[in-house]
Design a binder for these strands. Structure first.
Length: 798
DNA sequence: AGCACGCCGACT
DNA sequence: GTCGGCGTGCTC
């Protein structure tokens, strides 16, 4: 008997292992590892992934596979073994590792219906529920509160429950027709057709000269009613043809040709091309300031890979995955490029994924999950803006795209390029140690000077009586740009895009009733919303604590900046970009387009405007509050501040006009601000490494974060304590365990959270020990209401 | 995760 | 005496 071992789509500790199934004879030659199948699992049907196919000798009685969901495997051997690796590295369930590699369209959609068997009469009460139908959806019975009745009827055999499994997304098809007659037959047929069949005759005549050719119904211009009649008469044949949805329909990309590289670029690209040619794995850090021409190096490296008959993956942060950016790849590589980003519909992503899987494209440009692109012969993986934290997934499987890229490159013996102007400390340290190869692009293409940076001490401004959010320096420069007709970008370095609500009399802050966080205020609907649990309520107009009417939204949101700006400079045309103004699809693009077309003088926004903007008329960049994120309880806050300020400064003067940058701050002496102004990465690196060494943080130590949650604070705390006691003896004395302490966000969704942080250098046992912890608490904790989550190499410590 | 089974309290 | 609450254990 041929059998398959299958991972079922049930994410739980107890089901996190393969289950064996019989392969029915009709699928003997079809079912292969890497395919999705539908299998019976207990009383229901679920999706599963075939890991292995084998010939079984011992005569176990196994349930047979119900049917395959794919004709060809959706995961190749490399991806299957990558899933093994990911499962171990990130401590996730195998099923999560498999699912993350596929587009959402391929996730299973489950439904249940209750059907009459017809063998026995059913209870009159049931008849009313069925209301003359043969089957009804499960939900309908559940809503009617009849599940207990149903169960009884199922037992005595008068009803049955049918479980169905489908893929979420579907292939898009188009109806095609062809005329089966020869040209002579065609004209004869038209002769003998009824006089009143005008449309049908017209339709047939359309085919003269092109019979036996498949054409889409649309191309023929025939109505579906006419087509139906002709098909019935046997003159036409029809079929459904699979087609791709085209997110770029109607767009033409002018092709471009490789640029001539500068000496600097040539030096940097040579080792990469050598690695590609020789087929050796290895990680390169391409360190170059904005405007130093990293992208051209990517493009030419990819060209080499394509010439060699291999494929390339390019990862970019979601936020900079703009058409502006992807166009560059489309222009160079034309139809060989697939693009994967969150703006695509589920169906569009599915189509792009299939193009990759079928090798119809050579290059994929996409965000984090594109690192799993199902190519068969990868020649290069590029991660642009390597330092971006969005490469780390914050839900299971908690993977970092950089680690996955390096793992895949080892399989394919191909290089990885990490590109950044401000590499993460971890990466730069590895490059210095020689683990990665450091390639530096020292100069900007065309040797354009870096913009002059003016750091303004806002404490000084206040002392001298300027209480506005604009320093005199920034304000003067703003006015000057307005007069000259040049453009300005104002950057609000702040995470809370919307503000919170505070009472000016008693200091009450509107917090979420379920979580220990303040809720954010959404002006358009006058609502308060919790970003952790989704709770919403109407914003109060009087303080619920003291009854004061002086309760209002507070915090310098972009809206507030805009208001003040309009007061001071009423003639300024402002585009505001934040969550409120970019909510609708394509709004982001539209606003940027407007700014590019010089329909506005000032672009005001948050994080989202820091990347990829490249407009010739920007000559001033203002950072309103450079240090807001510096004071977050996060050991990476200096690094993030430095990266952001460096990034933002790079926006000014990228073209012929010289640029200026004004950075407003309350801590002008801080090294991350000073060194960002100088664009001095090397010194920042030295300084920050010292801080990390003192604090015992990466890259000197690795981190693992354990978070325990429970409805009762005491339970969470005691479990966290027990976990620490349990793991301490299993680790070497060099490991440091911090905590347990209450999490910085002590409660989410009415669950209290405690955490402990493990700092370690070399702990070969660690994942095993942590896995034991998870197993232990999944058994015992379930009845107890306890939840344990573990994040290896965390980026969010809250 | 579901889903069934099974064992105890509150009702006709 | 039954209905239905949710603790327990299993799913090839």
């Amino acid at each position: 008997m041929k059998t398959a071992s299958v991972i079922v789509d049930v994410a739980a500790m107890q089901t996190d292992r393969p289950f064996d199934y019989e392969i029915p004879d009709r699928w003997r030659e079809v079912i292969q590892p890497g395919m999705r199948v539908i299998v019976p699992f207990g009383p229901r049907h679920v999706q599963g992934f075939v890991l292995d196919v084998k010939e079984e000798t011992e005569g176990r009685k196994l349930k047979p596979i119900i049917e395959p969901m794919d004709i060809v495997p959706v995961l190749n051997e490399e991806l299957l073994s990558l899933a093994d690796w990911l499962t171990i590295e990130s401590l996730c369930f195998k099923i999560s590792a498999l699912q993350v590699m596929l587009p959402a369209a391929m996730k299973a959609k489950y439904s249940k219906v209750i059907r009459k068997t017809g063998e026995q009469p059913i209870h009159p009460e049931m008849e009313t529920l069925f209301n003359n139908r043969e089957e009804i959806p499960w939900e309908e019975a559940a809503d009617a509160g009849k599940l207990a009745h149903i169960r009884k009827e199922v037992k005595n055999g008068s009803l049955e429950v049918i479980y169905s499994v489908k893929s979420k997304g579907r292939k898009k098809t188009v109806r095609m027709v062809k005329c089966t007659l020869s040209d002579t037959e065609l004209s004869e047929t038209v002769e003998i057709m009824a006089k009143n069949a005008v449309k049908q005759k017209e339709a047939l005549l359309f085919f003269s000269g092109r019979t036996n050719q498949w054409l889409t119904l649309k191309e023929t211009g025939i109505s579906s009613a006419t087509a139906k009649a002709l098909i019935e008469k046997g003159y036409l044949q029809e079929k459904q043809e699979e087609m791709y949805r085209d997110p770029h329909s109607g767009q033409d990309f002018e092709s471009d040709t490789p640029l001539v590289l500068t000496e600097n670029q040539k030096e940097a690209i040579t080792p990469i091309l050598d690695a590609i040619n020789e087929g050796t794995s290895g990680t390169f850090l391409l360190h170059g300031v904005t405007g130093s021409g990293k992208t051209e190096i990517y493009l030419q490296s990819i060209s080499r890979v394509i010439e060699k008959g291999q494929e390339a993956i390019v990862l970019v942060p979601e936020i900079s995955l703009t058409p502006q950016m992807t166009e560059r790849f489309k222009r160079r590589f034309g139809n060989d490029v697939a693009v994967l980003h969150s703006g695509l519909s589920i169906g569009e992503k599915y189509d792009e994924w299939r193009k990759i899987s079928r090798n119809e494209v050579k290059v994929v440009v996409g965000a984090r999950s594109a690192v799993f692109a199902p190519f068969q012969n990868i020649g290069l993986i590029i991660i642009d803006e390597e330092h971006e934290t969005s490469y780390k997934q914050e839900e299971n499987p908690r993977y970092h795209a950089r680690d996955v890229a390096i793992q895949r490159s080892a399989f394919y013996n191909c290089p990885v390029i990490l590109g950044s102007a401000t590499p993460s400390l971890e990466t730069y340290a590895r490059a210095k140690k020689g683990v990665y190869t450091l390639l530096s692009l020292e100069s900007r293409v065309n040797d354009r000077p870096l913009p002059a940076v003016d750091i303004v001490d806002m404490r000084e401004e206040l002392r001298e009586g300027n209480r506005s959010m604009f320093s005199r320096s920034l304000f003067d420069k703003l006015k000057d740009r307005l007069e000259k007709g040049e453009q300005t970008v104002l950057f609000l370095n702040k995470r809370g895009y919307s503000s919170f609500i505070i009472c000016r009399d008693c200091g009450y802050v509107a917090g979420c009733p379920n979580c220990d966080v303040s809720m954010t205020y959404h002006r358009h609907r006058h609502q308060l919303k919790c970003h952790y649990c989704g709770y919403e309520e109407l914003a109060p107009s009087v303080c619920p604590e003291c009854g004061s009417e002086h309760i209002r939204h507070f915090g310098t949101g972009t809206q507030k900046v805009e208001e003040e700006l309009l007061k001071l400079l009423p003639q300024a045309r402002i585009i505001r970009m934040d969550v409120d103004t970019t909510g609708t699809k394509g709004a982001h693009e539209r606003l940027l387009r407007k700014f590019a077309d010089k329909e506005a003088d000032i672009l005001l926004g948050t994080q989202m405007i820091a990347k990829g903007l490249d407009f010739p008329h920007i000559t001033l960049v203002g950072v309103l509050s450079a240090d807001t994120m510096l004071h977050l309880p996060d050991f990476r806050s200096s690094e993030k501040t430095f990266q952001l300020l460096t990034q933002v400064s790079g926006r000014a003067g990228r073209h012929t006009l010289p640029g200026e940058v004004v950075v407003q701050t309350y801590t002008p002496e801080h090294y991350s601000i000073q060194l960002a102004a100088e664009q001095n990465y090397e010194s920042f690196y030295q300084q920050e490494m010292m801080m990390r060494k003192m604090g015992g943080y990466p890259p000197f130590y690795y981190l693992a974060l354990i978070t325990v949650s429970h409805e009762e604070a005491v339970e969470a705390a005691s479990a966290a304590n027990k976990i620490v006691t349990k793991i301490t003896p299993s680790l070497s004395p060099a490991a440091v365990i911090l905590g347990p302490v209450a999490s910085p966000i002590a409660r989410i969704n009415n669950r209290y959270r405690w955490q402990c942080l493990i700092k370690y250098k070399r702990e070969p046992n660690l994942t095993d020990v942590l896995k034991e912890v998870l197993e232990h608490y999944s058994k015992k904790g379930k009845s107890n209401g306890l939840m344990v989550s573990i994040d290896i190499h965390p980026y969010v410590l809250m």
